[in-house]
Amino acid sequence: MMSNTEYATNENLHEPPSQQIIFLFMSAFAIAALFFSSLAYGIVPLNTAGVLDAFLAFDGSREHLIIIDTRLPRAVLAVIVGAALGAAGAIMQALARNPVAAPELLGVNHGAALFVAGGSFMLSAATAQQFVLLAMAGAGVAAAFSYFISLLGPNTTSSTKLVLAGAAVTSICAALIQLILILHDQTLDEMRFWLAGSLIGRDIAILGSVAPTLVAGGLLSIVIGPKLNVFASGDITAQSLGLNILTVRIAAVSAVVLLAGSAVALAGPIAFIGLAAPHMVRHLAGADYRWIILLSASTGAALLLFADLAARFVVPGQEIPVGIMTALIGIPFFLAQVRKGTLS
């Protein structure tokens, strides 16, 4: 319950948002810089000045092909996936009134992976479109399940309960995935790539099939901001202020599922952006959820770009999956939250 104070301070809601605007510009600048570095630096060393040429004067050389065909889609994906995960994390934390309620901790990634594996095993789904739908359904089911478990029984706002419910759902999904992979070699072959959680070699065409849900999730998260400001003041206060709690809950859950589900469908399991991004912006963004969601999205994009860039250089000559990199960046935030002692 102590953690609620962080969400319920509404006194500076109507101050001029200069701090937030500065933060927004800073993160936009960071995204631009990281985006450029993401194009310019990688395993294959390229001429930095040539990056602009690739766009302005494309000549079909190897360098230009690498930039346009490999690095550009990767950077674009990083921005989209990072923003979606950041926004989803911010909404989820507002919904659960719990600073550790990141989509990843609720088993979204493993749920999506389970549905994709099960789909390719039992329904022999193969097209990217089917994978996207399955991933989204799995993400939604897993998140809803974890959240629902944490609402059962006494002490419904306990962080420990939420995190452990997510851990339990995750291990069930992981066990079932392993079972499917053991029973069905072909699935293992198809899934290995998807399960790695990376931005490399993803078919940019998938973006087209995810775009509707992504846009819907984005719009929903814009609309829901003001409602969440009221929601943050607690169920009873919000209700007496005329807010329909149930509608807000359903809208928020749908937004999270649409955003996180699209992200998983695009890039596979990417961990902890949804936890770290809202955590990073909390002190600067104030209490207005419109700003928190927007800034979490921009920070999430910058974080994922950074993680993707770092993943190319941590192990010399080899890339590590970006999902692992984001876990390494994100877990310290979780542990810091634990250390601070505001969780119950």
Binding site: V100, S159, T160, V163, L164, A167, A271, I324, A327, L328, I331, F334, L335, V338, R339, G341, L343
Partner: peptide, 15 residues
């Protein structure tokens, strides 16, 4: 808190 920290440490080591 010990359990929460344990979950985090577990994920860290898995990574």
């Amino acid at each position: 808190r010990l359990v929460l920290a344990g979950v985090g440490v577990g994920v860290l080591f898995s990574a």
